[in-house]
């Protein structure tokens, strides 16, 4: 399952960052998006994009085209 499909307020665990853009991947890793990290979707903007993700006690807004490349599990 990818992060864009996860329901609001559901806590999930990161499995893999599958994006091709290595710059974006590195940025997310450095923000704490690493394997087994628990994250939660907390807010969705109008048109369902971007989405605010709560990670390690802070919030990051990310566009859906990036979330589609983040594999997660429950």
């Amino acid at each position: 399952m990818t992060l864009d499909k996860v329901k609001l307020h559901k806590r999930v665990k990161i499995v893999r960052l599958g994006m091709c853009d290595q710059k974006v991947k590195r940025r997310l890793q450095e923000l704490g998006f690493i394997r087994n990290q628990i994250i939660e979707k907390i807010f969705v903007a109008l048109f369902n994009d971007p989405i605010v993700i709560k990670i390690r006690n802070y919030s990051v807004a990310i566009s859906v085209n990036i979330l589609k490349d983040i594999e997660v599990c429950e």
Binding site: Y58, V60, A61, S63, N65, I66
Partner: peptide, 8 residues
């Protein structure tokens, strides 16, 4: 190409 990452 447009993507968005921003700290709240």
């Amino acid at each position: 190409t447009n993507y968005y990452i921003n700290e709240i």
